[in-house]
Structures are given as structure tokens and as C-alpha cells.
Nucleic acid binder design. Structure first.
Lengths: 338, 338
DNA sequence: CTGTTAGCGCTTTCAC
DNA sequence: GTGAAAGCGCTAACAG
């Protein structure tokens, strides 16, 4: 009980050395005979000595904390990216502090204010759309900062992600080439997710280039979910004035919800209507009729992020921006029309 | 640039007060005239003063950090619990440090060793199965500790969760009452998830009480996924010696994978075979044929956890253990047989 | 290889 | 209501 615990001084006394030797032994730095080191380590263990990181951090004016802000943990995309980053970062001795901003610039900004007080070794934020103050703070902090998931020519510091506009455009072109010309988009609250908006823009542009355009842009408020897709689909299909020939969803999960709605209405996919998702999530592995979607490189983003961060924290900087490719998955939920 | 930034002394000088007044102003504690306070706050803002948390933490021998260890972020169950806890905890001024243990007792133990160095305000771990050393460390630390998701009569400190054995048993009894007698279980690596094992035990016990038992216990290594369910289902169905009448899956997502496998084989559900999931996840909202499953109170666990933690950190302790109810969802993936 | 001397930037007393 | 002194527990820098 108590937590008061032994401090470095107690270990030093018990081991009959100076506190500096204990400090060196605990950190595993060199400049200590093997015997002294192991003796110190043994007494430290016996005393249940736990070094105080706050004291260490204060003395070095640095910490091993890496702050990471993602919009949500519900979207498995971020869980996958985080999972991929974690291993290398932990192995390099860093600790992760994960925050969810719920797609709020304001919450992200507040988090930056808070986390900076811990003198983190690096910061990771999602996307390239931040409040002005956030950008300023990050740029002025001198802390290596990585923007993930989206990509930009003008990162705050470092960036790794995909070009969402291009991904949307590529899918649009693909659909145009299949003969589709009356696409509808189904997603969440307008403006909530800047990356999603870029994809919609790219998608719309591709169709406009072919003389058509979005016949519907349906937003269902609330978090991204299977049910949002079903509801959005229902609303679009209830509107008989502009019957679409293909439904493009925010993610595969919404797309699956839409697929279920179509099935419930006896609408055959892809014969009567096409369905398109995004991300190529795990559910697509088990569907008898694979969704047409865009495969995003989550693992690669995570892995590259970790590598760049570790390098940056050791003062090495190579590429500032890395844009990874998105691949179109030709599923069975769309077909050649006309 | 630089991060060196202003320190409390600079603000004090600029505002023409002592550093103590600045300290008081920044923390919002009383004992300061309104004018002085606002003047200090203004100059702090002008100087972009960011209090150093490590220094504060060192001086007070405490921090506002709450360490949380969950097995994985892929399972939306944990994402939901975390999401529910986050709000109240942040509002009370705490910061969350989330760790994933990947279901490893050893990783959990290593994390406890690391996190304790930050003098966290509280610690949250998943389940009640920990290494001996972990339990000792947590009990001896004097830090409020909460075990979530599982439940026990003998918590390290506090606990909030569900009785997994009872949940498994209840589902087993329900299936027995429907007339099922040849259940198969499909999950991940044996022993990986202690909670899942408890559920399987409860399930098996219920059938044994009715004179039957599990005809198969199929484990697919690797993370919980849609595809693991599909594969597990395929393997069970390929084994013609012990044809089950109902398939019980680790989670709804595996169950959905199984459902797809059955569909691919022309096996009608629930006519030819029953399917049972766990958790009542979002996908169940959109399936035309809702899965029979157990609804787990994730939101309630998160909410209760936050409440108990906040109370415990202010020295208030009421119930040590809270066990929440699990509700059986009577879906269309099972039926009355015989 | 080991120890000594100064802090790191803040908060806790305890005066005034 | 405000301030001065004395650390919190550790590490950088230097000496030996």
C-alpha cells in the first residue's frame, strides 16, 4: 500500500552506490561495470523500485509519450492503422496516448493544448484539415508531427496517407466506364468527415466529366454504421423522382446496410442497381457477392507512419509526404450496364 | 519554434506577480483577487504559456492520467466501452492512456510496470484473469484499479462487467428449451480470451444438464473476424461424423461469416441448422433474419465504470463489484426444433 | 567507471 | 490576497 515506494536514493543507499549509478543502471546506459549494474538492478528489484517518469521527464525536458488523435475507434480503419503503428513504436520505447476527436476540429485543438503539456516525443493527427490555431501550435511546438490518412503537398511536418479526391475520382471513372450515369451518394452528416467530402467531390467530378452527376447526396446523421447505410438507401429509393443506377456509400459497412435494404425490396444487385463501398473491410471477405469498393492501405499507412516517426524523433527526415495507392476492387455489386 | 516556451517565472515577471499567484491562477484554485487572476491569465495567453505537466506531476506526486488496457481495438465492444467512459472522464479533467494487450497477460503485465511510473490517477484493466505479479503490483500500488467486462466476487479493487459463464449458460438453456441438442462452438484460439472460455463452459454445462454436450469445439487462430467465422463453419460442416444442429459463435461477426458459409452450401438457416452469435452488434440491425444472440450492456459498462472511477479517485467507494445483466435476443437464426 | 553539483518547472507549506 | 523558501525525484554535465 501507499505507493510512496522506494526512490532512487533508497536504492543507491541499499546498493552502496551513488544515485547516478542507479540512474544509469535503470536506464541501461553505458558507463557502469557489469557487476555494479547487476547488483543495482537486483536491489532495485528487491525494493520494488519504480522510477518516477515525471521526474525523469522534467529533468530531460522530454518524454517517451506519443500523442495520437483519431476521429473515432468505431471505424476499424483507425483501429487497423493504430494497431500497425503500435508494435514498432513500443519496441522503440515509446508510449502511446490515443485520443478520439469525434471528427471535431475543436476537440482536436483542445487535445493538442492538453497533450503539449506533457512534452510528447511526437504527435499524430488525422487528416490535413485542422483549426488555424492547431496548425500554429503544432508548427511552433518543434515536436515532430505526423498527419495520417489524408495527404497534402503542404504538411505541417510529415504526412502519410491517401489522396481521397483521387480515390473518389478513380471510382467515378470506373463506374462511368461501366456505363453508370445516375450515381447517388450515401454518407454521414455533411462536412463531418473532410476526407469523405473529398471523395464525394472526386466522384462527382468524374461523372460530371462524362456529362452526368450525382442524382442524390443523402446524409444520415450520427456515427457511421450498418444501419445508417440501410436508412440512407431506403430514403434514396423512396424518392422516385430521381432513380439512381448506382449507390455509392461512405464505407463498406454502410454499403452492406444498403445491400440489405435492396434485398428487402426485392431489388436485385447488380442487375437492378449497383452498390459501391469504400475501404474493402473484413465483411467483404465473406460476402457471396463481393462489394465493388476501394481497397485502402491501412496496414501500410500504419507501418510507414511508425517508421517515419521513429526516424523523425532521431532527427532524421527523408520524405515529408508519402501518398499511398488505393486499389479498386472489382466486385459483383456492379456490372457492365447499357 | 523551439518548444522552450515561456515558463511560470516568465509569466510572473510579465504580470508583475509571484510565481505562486500564476500557479494559482492557472489551476483555478481560490485565493486570488479576480483582477489579478484575469490579468495573469491574459499575460499567460499572450506569452503562449503552457504549464509543464511533468513538473506539476512531480510536485504533487500525482497525475491526471488514467491508464486503460483492453485486449484489442478491433472488437467494437471495447471501442464502445471506451467511448462511453471517455466523456465523463475527460470532463472531470482526466487524460486517458489506452493500451492494447492483444489478449496477452504478459503484455498487460509489462504495461502495468510502465504505466505505474507515471503515477496514474487510476488504472483500468480488462477481465479478472491477470498474472500473479500484475495483481500484486496493482493491489500494492494504492492506485484505484477497475476490472471491466468480466465480473468477480474478489476484485483487485473495483469491477464492472458481466458474468460470462452465466451468459453462456443462459444461452445454452435457451437453446435446450428450443430443442437443440447437438451444439458446436466456433471461436478463436483456445485460452486466448478467458471470457470466451467461460461462456463456452457455461454453454456446454447447460447442454450437459440436458443430457447432451458440444459436438464440436472449433478454433480458428488469429484475430476475431468475419472470415474466421466462415472458415470455422466450413470446417465444422466438412466433418460429417458429428453434424451439429446449432452453431454457436464467438461473436455476431463470426456468426455472420458462418451464415454466409451456410448460404453458400445451400443450408437453410434456421431450418437446416441454427446460428447463434454474441454481443448483438450493429450488423444485427440490418440483417433480414436477425441473429439469435446475447445483448451485452457495453454502454452501461462504460458509463458505470466512469462513475465508479471518478468516485474512487475522490476517495469514495460504494459497491466494489457491479454485475450487469445480459439479455437474450430471440432472433430468426434459431427456431423451435423437434 | 563512479560520484558531485546543479538544476528541470512546478506546488506545498508557511509567513506576511 | 500574496509571496518566499524548500523541495518533488530524477538526469546532464562535469570532475575525478
Amino acid at each position: 500500500m501507499g505507493g510512496r515506494g522506494a526512490k532512487i536514493e533508497d536504492v543507491a543507499r541499499a546498493a552502496g552506490v551513488s544515485i547516478m549509478s542507479v540512474s544509469r543502471a535503470m536506464r541501461g546506459v553505458e558507463g557502469l561495470s557489469p557487476e555494479t549494474r547487476s547488483r543495482i538492478l537486483r536491489t532495485a528489484d528487491k525494493l520494488d523500485y519504480v522510477p518516477n517518469r515525471a521526474a525523469g521527464s522534467l529533468a530531460t525536458a522530454a518524454s517517451n509519450l506519443i500523442g495520437i488523435s483519431v476521429p473515432t475507434l468505431f471505424d476499424s480503419v483507425f483501429a487497423e492503422i493504430l494497431d500497425e503503428m503500435r508494435g514498432p513504436l513500443l519496441r522503440s520505447g515509446y508510449e502511446l496516448m490515443i485520443e478520439t476527436s469525434d471528427y471535431s476540429r475543436q476537440r482536436e485543438e483542445a487535445w493538442i493544448e492538453r497533450i503539449i503539456k506533457w512534452s510528447p516525443a511526437a504527435l499524430v493527427v488525422c487528416g490535413t484539415d485542422h483549426s488555424r490555431k492547431s496548425r500554429e501550435r503544432l508548427a511552433a511546438s518543434g515536436i515532430p508531427t505526423l498527419e495520417i490518412w489524408d495527404t497534402t503537398d503542404d504538411p505541417i511536418d510529415l504526412s502519410v496517407g491517401i489522396d481521397h479526391d483521387a480515390a473518389g475520382y478513380a471510382m467515378g471513372r470506373h463506374l462511368v466506364s461501366l456505363g453508370y450515369c445516375r450515381p447517388a451518394y450515401i454518407g454521414t452528416t455533411k462536412g463531418r468527415d473532410p476526407r469523405a467530402e473529398k471523395r464525394v467531390q472526386g466522384l462527382a467530378r468524374a461523372f460530371e466529366g462524362a456529362g452526368s452527376g450525382l442524382v442524390a447526396d443523402m446524409r444520415i446523421d450520427g456515427p457511421s454504421s450498418f444501419d445508417a447505410g440501410r436508412q440512407g438507401c431506403a430514403r434514396v429509393l423512396n424518392d422516385l423522382t430521381e432513380w439512381p443506377d448506382v449507390l455509392c456509400f461512405l464505407t463498406d459497412h454502410l454499403a452492406f446496410g444498403g445491400l440489405m435494404e435492396c434485398a428487402a425490396r426485392g431489388l436485385e444487385v447488380p442487375e437492378a442497381i449497383g452498390i459501391v463501398g469504400f475501404n474493402d473491410l473484413g465483411i467483404n471477405d465473406v460476402l457471396p457477392q463481393k462489394l465493388t469498393t476501394s481497397r485502402t492501405p491501412r496496414a501500410q499507412i500504419g507501418e510507414t507512419s511508425a517508421r517515419m516517426l521513429i526516424a523523425a524523433m532521431s532527427g532524421i527526415r527523408k520524405a515529408r509526404t508519402v501518398a499511398l495507392p488505393v486499389e479498386i476492387v472489382h466486385g459483383k455489386s456492379t456490372r457492365k450496364v447499357k
